Simulated scan of single mutants.
Amino acid sequence: MTTSLTRRQREIFEYLQTHLKEFPHPPTLDELCTALGLSSKGSLHKQVQALIEAGLVAPMNNRRRGIRLTEQLPGEDQGLPFLGYIAAGQPIEAVEQHEPVQVPEFLYTDEPCYVLQVKGDSMIDEGILDGDHIVIEQRNQARNGEIVVALIDGSDATLKRIEQKPSHVILHPANMAMEPMEFSPEQVQIQGVLVGQMRSYC
Rank of each mutant, 00 (worst) to 15 (best):
L44F: 02
L44A: 02
H45W: 07
K46P: 04
K46Y: 13
A50H: 05
L51N: 00
I52S: 02
I52E: 14
A54C: 03
A54S: 08
G55A: 03
V57H: 00
V57W: 03
M60I: 08
N62D: 14
N62I: 08
N62A: 10
R63S: 05
R63V: 10
R64M: 08
R64Q: 13
R64S: 13
R65A: 05
G66V: 06
R68A: 06
R68M: 13
R68K: 03
R68N: 06
L69W: 09
T70F: 04
T70C: 14
T70N: 11
E71Q: 14
Q72R: 09
Q72N: 10
Q72G: 04
P74L: 01
E76V: 13
E76H: 12
E76R: 12
Q78T: 13
Q78N: 13
G79K: 15
G79F: 11
F82I: 01
F82V: 01
F82E: 00
F82R: 00
L83N: 11
Y85A: 03
I86A: 00
I86C: 02
A87F: 03
Q90K: 14
P91N: 07
P91L: 04
E96P: 05
Q102R: 15
V103K: 13
P104W: 09
E105D: 15
F106Q: 15
Y108I: 01
T109M: 08
E111T: 09
P112N: 12
Y114S: 12
Y114L: 10
Q117F: 06
Q117Y: 09
V118A: 01
V118E: 02
K119T: 10
G120W: 10
G120D: 09
D121L: 07
D121K: 09
D121R: 03
S122C: 08
M123I: 06
M123C: 04
D125C: 09
D125F: 08
E126D: 14
G127C: 09
L129V: 07
D130T: 14
D130M: 12
G131Y: 10
V135R: 10
Q138W: 07
Q138G: 06
R139T: 00
G145P: 03
V149D: 04
G154P: 02
